[in-house]
Amino acid sequence: MNSHDDELIKKLNLTAVKIRKHIIEMLYRAKSGHPGGSLSAVDAIVTLYFHHMKHNPKKPGDPNRDRFILSKGHAAPTLYAVLAECGYFDLKELKRLREINCMLQGHPVSQHIPGVEASTGSLGHGLSFANGAALAGKLDKKKYNVYVMLGDGETDEGQIWEAASAASHYKLDNLTGMLDRNFLQIDGHTEDVLRLESVRERWSSFGWNVIEIDGHDMQQIANAFHGTDGHEKQPSMVILNTVKGKGVSFMENNVDFHGVPPNELEYKIAMEELDVLQRKLEDAQ
């Protein structure tokens, strides 16, 4: 790793902490929402928006933009915080998540929120939608790439596997899937609810190029996207091994924080922990 990379990774890690603080803040204010899956998704989404993707917050409708689709729509706070930090809309909007007469709906809406590509929240649709955007890119001979994040529990849905077949059938090498492999859904551990393993073999047997990485390691994430962009004739799936609730000790690997926001005490502790992490990162050389 050279020093340029070091700087970049440090910047991305700091941004990720900032996003995590936004998430905790938003959910605490909204008194509802999904901390666990929002926190596990942060690092990959931050790497996409602050390093990897071609996009311009001033031109959200640019036909040549790369596209990111958040199929696991309950992680909306992560997407909103990232879009706001990029400048798609005012950071002030974050304070009013889930309130009446406000832009930021509980789950992403493409029509009214700049930068949101697809309306999600009903799990299982996003990969198909991403296929559509990728097919259009091929048809129009455009260079953009399409990225789509799935929850691991989400892949219980049959439609995911319809879409998995279609993406490889149409050789959508402009498509990169990101599987937030945090091993938890609502009713418990993914392997107890409805066995997913072997995830790797499943996707590769559907004709996908599969890469498995630490989903909280910015360097590995950046390298993975670089690799999938160059991969030809197959769609790629990046299995992000993640921790649900990542960054807040008592939320980590805790299924109870799937859809329950922090109370006042939990909020304070969570923010303190993230502040400590932020200072540590800032001080690190």
Binding site: P63, H125, F129, A130, G132, A133, L135, A163
Partner: peptide, 20 residues
């Protein structure tokens, strides 16, 4: 799209999002 109607409808929406 094969016998995969759910995928067909969501894919249609993705194509439409790109101006089709």
């Amino acid at each position: 799209m094969g016998i995969a109607e759910a995928n067909m409808i969501s894919t249609a929406a993705g194509l439409a999002s790109c101006g089709k």
